[in-house]
Design a protein around this nucleic acid. Structure first.
Lengths: 199, 199
DNA sequence: GTTTTTATCATACACTCGTATTGCGAAGGA
DNA sequence: TCCTTCGCAATACGAGTGTATGATAAAAAC
């Protein structure tokens, strides 16, 4: 029954199942059978779409990168227009931090893959890609803000963009293990924004 | 042969074997047999010291926390005396970043456990403990520096201590996957120190 | 000197794992 | 209409897993 089925769509659905299993029991507990059960298909079906477990996990990580990118884009669209540059930056960075359920789940999955990336360059490449994509957008906004005179005198736009993103990413881990509350984390973000933006 | 053997010492040695395996093949590939092989003992010996794999990994994480604490203490002792407060902070934070081989290895192991911590509160507790211990020391130094008038006017000592530590911890991941070079990372640290310290 | 303890090992057991193989039925091209 | 292709499933297999059990030898306790 090769009913015309969207191959990529199916793979994405399986990737979502991978995320669900990681979120529940951790990436070390992910088995191909678990993913099949989560997706409510047979083991053979998963094998049909991914020749190997490694291929499945790599695809899942790529899907995660795209998914985060899409989520940030829609978050931005939710901003009441017209929005200041500072508000855009704040809203986007806030969205990258695990402070509600969806973002928290994404962060858990990201860290799981990070642990793989320290030992397998293929995962590292995808995570690096995800990181630099967001950083590039942020640097663009900062350059615009700098040109518009919205930054405090003496601050370097590129450096501040990088530092700010590093700061928010540094908050991810502590937020997940309860070292900081979401309020504290957003407070640190706002403090940094106060120091950077003049307006 | 109960030749008086230091139980804790043996456990620490096995924990080191755990770290070695994690560093080579990742935490998901850690089996009790691997650890035994790495430590050059039999499977039964590992079982003698740890009733279960979970207990072994938890002990290893506790040992990691102590080990990092000890390493930071000895790093501090290596500072040419008398050292300014700023130099102490810089040297210590630099030591927490994965920029050479030992610190890199420690970071890899930490991230591996972090991935467990997102799903198992027992690991989260230990990591939280490690995090707050270092943060407390840092805040102490900042409070002293503040009292001595070494900070720039208008900066809040506690907030800056937290932000600075979060920044350096945010650099750990990118450093491991090659998104930043050690030079860039230290540059960001120095930039932040310039902004905080008056002297 | 006998008896406990204890450190260490070898082996066994019941799983679960990733992956390969095979089969089947339905759709699409000829 | 035939027949190739494809989505999907069931099953098999060997390897590796965590853990339990039994044996051995040596040090300690008495």
């Amino acid at each position: 029954m090769p009913k015309k089925v969207d191959h990529e769509e199916r793979r994405r659905a399986l990737a979502e199942a991978v995320f669900a299993v990681i979120g529940e029991r951790g990436i070390e507990a992910v088995s191909v059978r678990d993913v099949a059960r989560q997706a409510e298909v047979s083991l053979g079906t998963v094998q049909h779409y991914f020749a190997t477990k490694h291929e499945m996990l790599l695809f899942a990580l790529g899907h995660l990168r795209d998914r985060i990118g899409r989520r940030l884009a829609t978050e931005m669209a939710l901003l009441p227009q017209p929005a200041t540059r500072r508000a855009t930056v704040r809203h986007t960075l806030r969205a990258t931090m695990p402070i509600d359920d969806p973002s928290r789940h994404e962060a858990v999955v990201t860290i799981a893959f990070f642990s793989y990336a320290t030992v397998d360059p293929a995962y590292a490449r995808l995570l690096h890609d995800s990181y630099t994509r967001i950083l590039a957008v942020l640097r663009g906004w900062f350059a615009e803000a700098d040109a518009a005179g919205e930054l405090r005198p003496g601050v370097d736009a590129a450096t501040e963009a990088t530092s700010l993103y590093v700061l928010t990413q540094g908050l991810v881990g502590p937020l997940l293990i309860g070292t900081f509350t979401p309020e504290e984390a957003v407070g640190l973000l706002d403090g940094a924004l106060d120091r950077i933006f003049a307006t």
